[in-house]
Design a binder for these strands. Sequence first.
DNA 1: TCTGGGGTCCTAGGACCC
DNA 2: TCTGGGGTCCTAGGACCC
Length: 419
Amino acid sequence: MYALVDCNNFYVSCERVFRPDLNGRPVVVLSNNDGCIIARSNEAKELGIRMGEPAFKIADFLQQNQVAVFSSNYALYGDLSHRVMSILGRFTPELEIYSIDEAFLGLAGLNVDWEDYGRKIRETVLRHVGIPVSVGIAPTKVLAKAANHHAKKGRGKQGVGVLDSPEKIEAALKELPVDEVWGIGRQYTKLLKAQQVETAWEFRQLDDDWVRRRMTVVGLRVKKELEGIACLEMELIPPAKKVICTSRSFGADQTDLGPLEEAVATFAARCAEKLRRQRSCAGMMMVFLHTNGFKEDEPQYAKNLVFKLPAATNSTIELARHARAALRVIYKKGYRYKKAGVIVMGIVPEERVQGSLFSGVDEAKHAAVMKQIDRINAKYGRDTIKIAAQGSGEKWKLRRQKLSPCYTTRWEDIIKVRV
DNA sequence: TCTGGGGTCCTAGGACCC
DNA sequence: TCTGGGGTCCTAGGACCC
């Protein structure tokens, strides 16, 4: 059996942990740059606020309905996520952290009442971290997801859904719209609806060969999982990333090369940090920038450059140097740029890097410097020490007008309790 | 004024190898 | 009718996830 534990309206719940006055009120959290709605409390959902809606389009509506609006505060969400996961880790040695707000628990060999067990997980996380979660328990991952969905819709008991018999599975799948099945997205939904398939149960009745042909082995695996045949294994150790991307829309459009160079150097620095964290190096890089496609009356320009690095590296200095050089190649004067990014690829483990006779870079020296930079920044906070090319970010940094305090990760933001 | 960011996997087709 | 057989690597495109 597997459990899927999913935090309810996670970002909103994080904001509420230190603001209990927001319980029962509509709350939303915005994407970077205060752009779109990316998390909604149940009250906000009931008001009809849609996922992904641009905030500026419904600014009046939000105000009229006294919706509490927050910029996204990833320092807070990341920290609370970490706490939730460490609590879940007490329940089983088989924990797969699937995303910032979800985890699978392998429950093999456990002989307990599943309803009780699910409730215990819920209560423990709520008491220790203050985040409400839903728990789905079933024989496969896809069914655990379905059980979780079932629980969220209020049909399970107190946020816990258990599908441990063919009868319960059939009943739940007959109520589950096919587009809510994990692994069935927009395109497959269209395909299935054209076949008169509306529910997960109807999908399960389809012919294997047809599914294989039209939805590849991925679709077939989903179907088998719905039948109760486990095809998806637990990933206890997160595999190293094969591609790492850092990109941002700017708080304001950029026209000059200078600030763009700083932005790209900063993105390269973030990529380098991510590479070092997973102990790998990148052999290729892509740098891209583009104007704002929504402004149809303005001249548009988008360009990227992909290139091999002379030797695979995770040095901030090297990656930033190449990123800036690439930017200078693709930058054209006379446009208003909205977004840029750096992607690193050709990722290999640190200890398997093929050196270069001609790069002229002393890799050992770079590694030693990076180690000290990481140590200092881990202790005193990100960018306490950085390379000069990153600049201050003053010109291009994100708009975050409604940022909540970093209650758990900054000394200055810790809540004061009056005695 | 204003519209997010970061990933994975699978398949088909072309170039190339012996 | 019937044009060898078996393979790798790379890329682009399309699907999906949070």
